[in-house]
């Protein structure tokens, strides 16, 4: 155990700056992926509530397909597969798009759950005081939905951040890939991958705690008013 920790004392100054730089890449990758996922999820949830059957159908198929396909398959397809038919992107772009496509389906579920969680009476009360349906959505449903879904959005972001580690396998220079590079340089895979794990943990865990606190607060409020 002591020996294990001594390794970090010895090499830490060489490893940690490189890991920190790579962690920044991981973070920006996660943000980029999340923005795409948010946009796709929002679009899907609009489709889901559309009066047009075709759009609802598209949304359903999208969710089923992308919830059934592993992120890794999507990433490989985008980065290694599409050049075969003449579409080329940088590894970072392919990763952001891949994460976005995959997590877009999850975001759609998050939005749907949020909208469903709002009591129907809320909308009815808004219409009863004379708001138009659009106003009711804008001033009553939407603000509440945003609050209700913000914890699950954060949780989705955390999962996305963790899964961004897979982008190492399509050569994005993020934390995990840096770990593999270090592991081949220093022949200390246990120390290095544990350190990489700790890096991810230090980013993800505080966010997890935050999500839980937010969730608890919202729940406490909900029990007070319907």
């Amino acid at each position: 155990m002591i020996e294990f920790l001594e390794v970090y004392v010895k090499y830490g100054s060489q490893w940690f700056p490189r890991m920190a730089d790579a962690a920044l890449v991981s973070a920006s990758l996660a943000f980029a992926g999340f923005i795409v996922a948010f946009a796709i999820g929002l679009m899907l949830s609009i489709f889901q509530r559309s009066p047009l059957r075709l759009l609802r159908f598209v949304a359903t198929i999208y969710v089923v397909v992308f919830r059934g396909i592993p992120l890794l398959a999507i990433l490989f397809l985008l980065y290694f597969g599409l050049p075969g038919i003449g579409v080329t992107m940088s590894a970072f772009t392919a990763s952001a798009v891949g994460l976005g496509l995959s997590f877009g389906a999850q975001m759609a579920e998050v939005f749907r759950a949020g909208l469903e969680a709002i009591h129907r009476g809320q909308r009815e009360a808004a219409i009863a005081v004379g708001m138009t349906p659009l106003q009711a959505f804008r001033f009553v449903t939407l603000p509440q939905a945003v609050r209700i879904i913000s914890p699950s959005m954060l949780v989705t972001f955390i999962v996305l951040l963790k899964d961004s580690s897979l982008c190492a396998l399509i050569t994005v220079n993020e934390l995990m890939l840096e770990g593999r590079a270090l592991a081949t340089e220093y022949f200390l895979p246990l120390n290095i991958f544990v350190a990489i794990g700790v890096f991810y943990f230090l980013i993800a865990w505080p966010l997890s705690l935050l999500a839980r606190t937010m969730d608890a607060r919202i729940r406490a409020k909900q029990t007070r008013t319907l």
């Binding site: 580690s165 190492a168 770990g179 593999r180 290095i192 794990g197 991810y200």
Partner: peptide, 14 residues
């Protein structure tokens, strides 16, 4: 709060 890939690497390579 640690990615699956990191855990597999720790177990397999580490």
């Amino acid at each position: 709060n640690i990615p699956a890939l990191a855990i597999l690497f720790i177990i397999y390579f580490g």
